[in-house]
């Protein structure tokens, strides 16, 4: 892993100046979670790589790092925001027509193209499906270039499964294995009940020739990585998306320091072998 640098020029021009975006659409995903479709007021949406994030600025409240969960052909970004604090609460409460500031995209992305020719295992827990959705879309758009594709999704309950409208068509595809599980359910749920790492041994993939993309709560990722390693997947073939409190997003301020790295610029997507020693240390 490279040590963090302090040169903001690496992030492109004017990385601290937010661009004005307009909320074009608000979609209620869960009780406390919405997706915001944001279009630039001036100019075109910048390119992005699946797995990257933007800094969204709720004017008068503050700024938060939110992963890009989709893009639309009209040139807008989609961000899925869960209301857990002052800034995310303000963002989740935005109405259509409101202006927001946006800096980005920042950070590393999922190395989807590098997985060509190999099997791909995508493991998402809870809101972890949000930053993985663009990676899944990229995989499926170029499906013939990959081996077997398995998408493993976990959530607390059937009611808290993210993007059911996206899961359904993925599940109907004959060339994708989609396994969904929830931690708890009522008797009317006909799907699986159990933790998402438990899906790993049930998925069909070649452990010697696969790439795993994992995103979710850190505890879930630790157990999932353990299940992947137990299945025989090499550490360097496992990629995880880390989450830390980010501020500058360009490796200046150190808010998101994770050992020798900064999650904002060396992550959020990191190769597991590069961070394995830090993964289970509290308060890193």
């Amino acid at each position: 892993m490279s040590m963090a640098t302090t040169d903001p020029r690496a992030a492109g021009p004017a990385p601290f100046v937010p661009q004005a975006y307009r909320v074009e659409e608000v979609t209620r995903e869960l009780a406390d979670t919405v997706s915001l479709r944001l279009a630039p007021l001036d100019g075109a949406r910048p390119d992005f790589r699946p797995g990257q994030f933007n800094m969204l600025w709720a004017f008068g409240v503050g700024e938060a790092a939110i992963s890009i969960s989709d893009v639309e052909t009209d040139g807008s970004f989609v961000h899925t925001v869960r209301a857990v604090g002052a800034v995310s609460g303000a963002l989740a409460g935005l109405e259509v027509g409101t202006r927001v500031g946006l800096r980005g995209p920042f950070g590393t992305g999922w190395r989807v193209a590098e997985a060509r020719g190999a099997d791909v295992v995508v493991v998402a827990g809870g809101l972890g499906l949000a930053p993985l959705r663009p990676a899944i879309q990229a995989l499926l758009a170029d499906r013939a270039r990959y081996g077997r594709v398995a998408i493993l999704v976990g959530a607390r309950s059937p009611e808290t499964l993210l993007y059911p409208e996206a899961l359904a068509p993925w599940q109907r595809r004959p060339d994708v294995e989609v396994l969904v599980t929830v931690d708890h359910a009522g008797a009317d749920w006909a799907g699986r009940v159990g933790v998402v790492p438990g899906l790993v041994p049930r998925a069909a993939f070649d452990a010697d020739d696969c790439v795993a993309l994992v995103c979710g709560p850190e505890v879930m990722m630790r157990f999932t990585v353990a299940a992947l390693r137990h299945a025989g997947v090499a550490a360097e073939r496992i990629h995880v998306s880390m989450e830390r409190n980010m501020k500058c997003a360009v490796g200046w301020c150190g808010h998101c320091q994770f050992g020798p790295a900064f999650v904002c610029k060396d992550g959020p997507v990191m190769r597991y072998d590069a961070i394995a020693d830090l993964f289970s240390i509290p308060e890193v």
Binding site: R82, V84, G125, G126, L127, G128, G154, A155, R156, T160, D183, H184, G194, V195, P197, G198, G216, P217, V219, M220, F223
Partner: peptide
């Protein structure tokens, strides 16, 4: 043992603050 581990993970309710 696997089911015990799974149960512990369920008890953690990891999606509560993701």
């Amino acid at each position: 043992v696997k089911r015990l581990h799974d149960t512990r993970l369920q008890v953690l309710d990891v999606y509560g603050d993701d």
